[in-house]
Design a protein around this nucleic acid. Structure first.
Lengths: 251, 251
DNA sequence: CGTTGGGTTGAACCCACTCAATACGCGTGG
DNA sequence: CCACGCGTATTGAGTGGGTTCAACCCAACG
């Protein structure tokens, strides 16, 4: 009866346009371009490992080849804030360039693999090879854009919408890497998510429960860490609805 | 050669350590190093002018030589957020590198002067000249660090402390440029400050009134845009006090 | 003058926080 | 096997900080 075909393809929700190559291939291409040009040190990490810490001398940039990281910023008075989430292909350590010391902690949330490159070696290797420099600058530029999107979310969205926006961001990150974007395995506690979003763990829990009640998300398994997003558009609609809860009866 | 000075100078932002040269000289040195190496276009701006807008094709990076800018990020649904404030020596437009389009609006808050350099020309000029690349990377790195500090403030501080932290940041920015840090002329309305800090203009007004009542700041003139900070330490103490208002009578 | 934009302040409301109880999953060890 | 502890998640009740709505002041300006 209904147009089943249109709703039947959950993974191909956004881009109907044909991609230039297999999704996520750019990430691998970039990694190989890099590792061909300059010596990189590979390192396996496990959940909880710290790749670097705030205050530590800066010498390397790090590229995530597999796994999942968070970066945590700490104030002088001890306040801590998760300021970034990092997936495959993301770079880490940019904040060390300016001051010669890393400015935050990078903590693995899962087993993974990191390729590290000395900053001076990278500079040396990229002189004359514009495409290497392009990779670096693109990564830094993307980081800046991403941080500003976080600021926008923190500054303008109420709690429920912030959680929904967080899930949308995660799904986008998966999609851009060619992974299925409708299945998310949160590798963070509610407290970590709350810290990242500037709210308490209880508010995160309530927001997720509401999202599930509205059937915008579905929990999978009993850990409540794994969830399914049937329709990304519905997520966006939920954000809009959470922003303007006034039905505006008059006028 | 001033190469040693250029790499050493930015680190001495906080400490009472003796500065290598007159405060703020690094900024001028950097600007001259740049303008000697690559063609830059100078442009005068007035309050309200837009240097670039979100979506516009990216081709230039911009360095603020005089004046004061804000950058505004806009969501697809129209939400707007001030995501950055820019003083003399700051670069703007980094978010355009990755996507080929600027990601936010840069709006002058005062008359000033901007030096613009084509990104490709800068890359060409900096091949083989490591110090030019260093300037660029340092500026991008500082931007990332700054954004993360904003996230920390947005995510962990109550309204009053956020306003106090904002003033401290402004004073620091003045200090780093060799200007007197105890005298601040806000060139923003309460609404703009509130937007930047993720709160309403009324909350900003109340917070400033409380800061004045506690004599942490003093208003100068009747516009209530100009203020004096007698003691920076008192500002930091105020932030701490606003964070833990519980006297903890028992235990 | 009246108008307009910005700032302050009060009163009422409400969203998100705090505090608390409960439940669940998963090890460890009796 | 169950008991136990521990970390994590959910949910409720009550509170409070920040918002909303409103009135008012002030300075600039035509």
């Amino acid at each position: 009866m209904h147009t089943a075909m249109l709703t039947a393809a959950p993974t191909a929700s956004r881009a109907a346009a044909p991609r230039p190559s297999a999704p996520g291939a750019q990430v691998n291409a970039s990694l190989h371009l890099l590792s061909d040009a300059v010596a990189m040190q590979r390192r396996l990490v496990h959940a909880g490992d710290r790749l670097f810490e705030s205050g530590q001398d800066f010498d390397c940039l790090h590229i995530l080849h597999a796994g999942f990281f968070k970066t945590v910023n700490t104030a002088a008075d001890g306040r801590e804030q998760v300021v970034g989430l990092h997936f495959k292909g993301d770079w880490m350590g940019f904040d060390g360039i300016a001051h010669g010391r890393y400015g935050c902690d990078a903590i693995a949330m899962d087993t993974g693999e990191v390729w590290s490159v000395r900053y001076d070696a990278l500079l040396a290797a990229s002189s004359g090879r514009r495409e290497l420099l392009g990779l670096l600058h693109e990564a830094m530029s993307r980081e800046i854009s991403r941080d500003r999107d976080s600021l926008l979310s923190l500054g303008t969205l109420p709690a429920d919408a912030r959680v929904a926006d967080f899930l949308r961001y995660w799904a986008d990150a998966l999609d851009q890497r060619g992974l299925r974007a409708d299945q998310i395995t949160l590798r963070m506690t509610r407290a970590e998510i709350g810290n990242y979003l500037g709210m308490t763990l209880e508010s995160v829990s309530r927001a997720l429960s509401r999202l599930a009640r509205c059937e915008v998300i579905r929990f999978i398994g009993k850990g409540r860490r794994e969830l399914n997003i049937p329709d990304l558009e519905a997520l966006s609609r939920f954000i809009q609805a959470a922003m303007a809860p006034q039905p505006r009866v008059l006028q």
